Amino acid sequence: MKLTVLGCSGGIGGARSRTTSFLVDDDILLDCGTGVGDLELDALRAVDHVFVTHAHLDHIASIPLLIDSVGESRRFPLTVYGSPETLRILRSHIFNWLIWPDFTAIPNRHRPFLRLQPVKVGECVRLGERAITALPAHHTVPALGYCLDSGAGKLVYTGDTTYCKPLIAALNQTRNLRHLIVETAFPDEQHGLALASRHLSPSLLGAMLDELEVSPQVYISHLKPGVGERIMAQIACYAGRLRPRALVHGEILEF
């Protein structure tokens, strides 16, 4: 499998600051932030599956526009996967005819442009030879991470999360884990804000990495604009076994 970074920033502000979105092979999106807007129309049409970690705007902003752009040209619905709570939020607050049309009923409920498919922690979605499993995460709203398994190797994307024991346990049970994409949104001087907003700071990230028994390459995402260099400098002081580095817009990870 191949993951292309369309966006990995914690905000906007600059030519390469796109919020979280990853293209997996040609037909899967992991989250659907502003980075999706850089894809050409043919690439948007090729996307059949969107796996959403949680309902915050920086992770779902492009879903309504994506469906509006390609819905009529598709032969079957675009499927959005997420926790039951996340899908309820999308239905109630986005696809509600007020913020955006309800594409689960357009052109009709028998052949809609959009299908919402709930997944729960531990549940596996198989797409041909590929498997995508929902993992636990701990954020201010219900949230998931995802493990992608190509059969040859695995990649885990945590989504937005603070220190989370169940997630650490799930990672330690993931054999042949090649890549781990984990957020770190705030520097250590904003440790209290990280705790309140249930994000990671470098010290919280270090505590999490200290408990890992697996040995993936660790990539840092969701760096807040303007403080990314400071966050990465603090992470560079981490003295543990794993050596995290910043994820880069446009980077491709294979596994």
Rank of each mutant, 00 (worst) to 15 (best):
A152M: 13
L204F: 08
H56V: 13
H179P: 00
A185C: 14
L204E: 05
Q217H: 13
L66M: 07
R241F: 05
G71C: 00
A15H: 13
A169Q: 13
G10H: 10
S150A: 04
Y219L: 15
A196E: 14
G159N: 04
M208I: 11
G37P: 02
K165Q: 13
S92W: 14
P244A: 07
T133P: 12
H222Q: 12
T184I: 03
I89W: 14
L114H: 05
N108E: 09
T20R: 15
R75E: 15
G206S: 01
R75Q: 14
E123Y: 15
A134C: 09
A61Q: 09
D210N: 07
H138P: 08
H191D: 12
S201T: 04
D58E: 13
W97T: 15
L87D: 00
I28C: 01
S21P: 02
A55M: 02
S69L: 00
L144T: 06
V50H: 06
C164R: 08
L98S: 14
R198A: 14
I63S: 06
H93L: 14
V36L: 08
D31P: 08
A131G: 10
L148F: 11
M208L: 11
R175F: 14
V80P: 01
T19F: 12
I235H: 02
P101E: 03
L44S: 06
A143S: 13
A105I: 03
Y146P: 01
W100N: 10
E183C: 11
D102K: 02
D48Y: 06
L205Y: 02
A61W: 05
T133V: 12
G122D: 05
T161H: 04
Q234C: 08
V141F: 08
L200I: 01
Q217E: 13
K120W: 04
I168M: 06
I106H: 06
I89V: 15
Y238D: 00
E213S: 09
P101V: 07
C147R: 15
I252F: 02
A131I: 03
G128C: 02
R243F: 11
Y238I: 00
C32W: 00
D25A: 12
G37L: 06
Y81H: 11
Q117C: 11
C32F: 00
T34R: 04
V182I: 10
G13P: 05
V50N: 06
L205G: 05
L171N: 05
I99T: 14
C32V: 07
D188M: 10
T184A: 02
L30M: 01
G153W: 05
A46T: 05
Y146E: 03
A170P: 11
M1G: 09
D160P: 10
N96G: 08
A185I: 09
L200C: 03
V119H: 12
E40F: 11
T140E: 15
S201V: 01
S69C: 00
K2F: 13
P107Q: 06
S92C: 09
M1P: 13
L193H: 10
R18V: 11
V52F: 09
L116P: 04
E254Q: 12
L65V: 09
L167T: 08
R91Y: 06
H59T: 07
G192C: 13
